[in-house]
Design a protein around this nucleic acid. Structure first.
Lengths: 360, 360
DNA sequence: CTGTTAGCGCGTTCAC
DNA sequence: GTGAACGCGCTAACAG
C-alpha cells in the first residue's frame, strides 16, 4: 500500500469486490453482529468499538448495509407502489392528481416510505407483482384490477384504493362523486335548465372520444366517471353528452364544439372536471355564446386554473390533497398492523359566475 | 378438508404462515430449484411438473416468488430512484418536469424498471441511501449532493444527472442553458434593448424571493438557474433582476410587478421559464404596459400554456421529453454494463410575438 | 429434465 | 458489551 490519498477510482483489485458487513467486521476485528449494531445503532455498542467499525468501513469504502438484504431480512422495503392510469403525462396534466400525489407523498415521506410509480398491467410498464413493495395505492384505476389485487393479497401486501369500485380487503378512500354531481345538477334544475349535457372523463382504458351511449356507460371501467354520470342522472334521468379523451382544456374545447354545434344545443353543461369545463367555455366563446347568460357550465375539482379569468367556475371543490394524505396515513396504519376504517370525503358545491337561469 | 370453495379468507392455521417456494415445492413433490424454474420459466421444465407446481401453489395460495428475496439473490430490484427538489407539487407544477418524467418513465418502463420518487436528503423524506434501487437519476438538484453521490458510488449504483454541475462518475444529460439564453439575449440586444432584467428560477433550496444579487448568484446551488444567468450576462454583463420562488405564472406575476413598479423599469425581461414569462406579461397588462410594444418578454422551455393567448411567447424550446428519454436509455445501458457517452441537448430559439424593437 | 449444494448480505436470537 | 450460529426466500451452479 502506498500513500492513502487514493480512493478516487483506484484500480487495485480490492475495489473490484464490493465489501460487505462481514468484511468490515473482520477488518475491525469484531463479529458481524456487532458491526451490524454499530451501523443500525439499535443496540448497546461501546464507542470505541463503533469507531473501530466505522474506520474499517471507511478504509474498505463500505457504504453501509445493503438495502436489498435489509429488505429481505426485515421483510420491509420501505416502498409503496402507486398505480395510475397508463400515461404519466396524462395523469400529471390534471392538477387533482398532482395535488393528491403531493398529499400522499407528504404523508408517506414522513414515515420514511418512498413512492414507486407503476402503471396498470398490460401497458408495458414494470410488472405490478414484481416490485418489492410494502403496500400499494390504486388511484383512478380501471375496475379490472382484481387479478392483480388478488396477487397482492396473497403476498400480504395491503392495498388502498382511491375512488374505486369496492373490493374485498381493499381499504377505500372515497369521494362523494355521485352525490356531489347530483347537487350540481339540482342547482341547474332549479335554475330552470332542461336541456343539459354531460362532458365526461374517459370511460375506457383506451380513452376514445365519442357520444355518451348506454352501452359505453354499461361497459365502462372508470369508476369515478361512472359515479358522476349516475349523479347527473339522479336529476336528469335521460341526460346525454360526450366522452372526452382526457382531463384537459383542449379536450373540453373539442367536446364543447361537438355539443354546441349540434341541432338542439344544451343550455347547460355538466363537465366532469374543471379543465373540461373551461374548455367548454372556450368553445362557447368561439361561437359567441355567452356564459352564463346563454350557457351554464359547471365543473368538478375546484382547482385554480391559469387563464380562467374572468370566469369563476361553478364547481365542486374536492379535497384532493386530503384524499392523498388520508391514503398515506391509512397505509402507514396498515403497515403498523392496525385496521384503519375506510375514509370518505365530500365535495363542496361552490357557485361561481358560470351558471345562471335558463333562457327559454 | 371440506369442500374446496373456500380460500376466501379461511381461518385455518394454514393461512397464518405465508407460504414460500420451498413449501410449494414440498407439496408438489419436487425440489425447490425446480419449482423456481417452473415460475421463472427460465429453464427446461416438463409441462407435467410445471402443472404440479402451479397446482400446489394455488392450493397453498402462493402468489409467486417474493420480490425482496429475488432482489437480494439477483442483485437487482428493478427500481430506479429519481431525486427531485423537495416538494412534489412544486416539481409537478412545471410542465417541463412532467414532460421529462414522462420520457424517463417511458424508457424505463420499457425495460421493466419502476420509478421511485425520492426527495433531496434533509427534506424529511425517504433516505436516498436506504432504498433498494439499481440506479439513480438526479434532476434539477442542488449542487450539494456530493455526499449522497459518493454513497451511491460505494454501492456501485450508477448515477445519471440531468442538468447538474459535472460530478465524477456521474453521467451527464445536459442542456445548453447558457448558450441558449445568450441567444435570446442577443436577440433582445439586436432589437436595441439595453434596460433588460432577469426573472430567475430559485437559486437556493429554500426558494426565497428577492433581488438578484452577486452574493446570491455566487452562493446559489441551482445549476440550471445559474447557467441561464451566465448566458444572459454573456450579452448584458451587468444585468440584474429578481429571483422567483418557483416556476409558475403566479411567481412571474409577483416578479413582474416588482420589476415594472420600480423607477427605471426595463424594456425587456428575460424570464427563466415560460410560466414566469407569462406572469410577467400579466403584470404588464395590469399596469397597462403593452407587450411587445412597450415591453419585450422572452421565456424558456417552449411549452404550450393554457391561457397564454393571444400571446405566442418568444422562447427557447427545449426537448424535455427527449431529455428524460435520454436519461432513461442511459440508465438502461449503464445497468447493462455499458458505458454510454454523456448526452447534450440544444434548445431552439423560437420568435413569437412577445418581443419587439426597443422604444427609446 | 430434475435434484443437490451453496450461498446472496444481513439481523437476530441466544449464550458468554 | 460482544461473539457464534442460524435463517430470511430464493436462485445459480453443477451433478445425476
Amino acid at each position: 500500500m502506498e500513500a492513502g490519498a487514493s480512493a478516487t477510482r483506484a484500480g487495485g483489485k480490492n475495489s473490484a469486490a464490493r465489501p460487505n458487513l462481514a468484511a468490515v467486521a473482520a477488518l475491525a476485528g469484531v463479529s458481524a453482529s456487532t458491526a451490524s449494531l454499530a451501523f443500525s445503532g439499535a443496540g448497546p455498542v461501546s464507542d470505541a468499538t463503533r469507531a473501530k467499525v466505522l474506520a474499517a468501513a471507511e478504509q474498505l469504502n463500505y457504504g453501509g448495509p445493503d438495502p436489498r438484504a435489509q429488505s429481505l431480512r426485515r421483510g420491509r422495503s420501505g416502498i409503496v407502489g402507486v398505480v395510475m392510469e397508463d400515461r404519466l403525462r396524462e395523469a400529471f396534466r390534471d392538477p387533482m392528481n398532482v395535488a393528491m400525489l403531493d398529499g400522499l407523498a407528504d404523508e408517506l415521506g414522513t414515515a420514511g416510505l418512498g413512492l414507486l410509480l407503476l402503471t396498470e398491467p398490460g401497458s408495458g410498464g414494470p410488472e405490478l407483482s414484481l416490485a418489492p413493495m410494502d403496500a400499494v395505492v390504486l388511484v383512478g384505476c380501471s375496475t379490472q384490477l382484481d387479478r392483480s389485487v388478488v396477487a397482492l393479497h396473497q403476498r400480504g401486501i395491503p392495498v388502498v384504493a382511491i375512488e374505486a369500485e369496492p373490493m374485498v380487503d381493499v381499504l377505500a378512500v372515497d369521494l362523494d362523486n355521485r352525490d356531489a354531481t347530483a347537487r350540481a345538477a339540482r342547482h341547474l334544475h332549479e335554475l330552470g335548465h332542461t336541456r343539459v349535457a354531460l362532458v365526461t372523463l374517459p370511460l375506457e382504458p383506451t380513452h376514445p372520444r365519442g357520444a355518451l351511449t348506454e352501452e359505453r356507460i354499461a361497459a365502462s371501467t372508470a369508476f369515478t366517471s361512472r359515479e358522476r354520470i349516475r349523479g347527473a342522472r339522479d336529476v336528469f334521468p335521460a341526460i346525454g353528452g360526450v366522452v372526452a379523451a382526457g382531463s384537459s382544456v383542449e379536450e373540453g374545447l373539442i367536446a364543447g364544439r361537438e355539443l354546441l354545434g349540434s341541432g338542439d344545443a344544451p343550455t347547460a353543461v355538466i363537465a366532469q372536471s374543471d379543465l373540461l369545463a373551461l374548455g367548454v367555455i372556450r368553445a362557447a366563446q368561439e361561437r359567441g355564446i355567452r356564459v352564463p347568460e346563454e350557457l351554464s357550465v359547471v365543473g368538478f375539482d375546484g382547482v385554480r386554473i391559469e387563464g380562467a379569468a374572468p370566469y369563476e367556475l361553478t364547481t365542486l371543490v374536492q379535497p384532493a390533497v386530503e384524499k392523498g394524505r388520508a391514503a398515506g396515513s391509512a397505509i402507514v396504519e396498515l403497515l403498523a398492523g392496525q385496521t384503519p376504517a375506510p375514509r370518505a370525503f365530500t365535495s363542496e358545491f361552490r357557485v361561481g359566475n358560470t351558471t345562471g337561469p335558463a333562457i327559454s
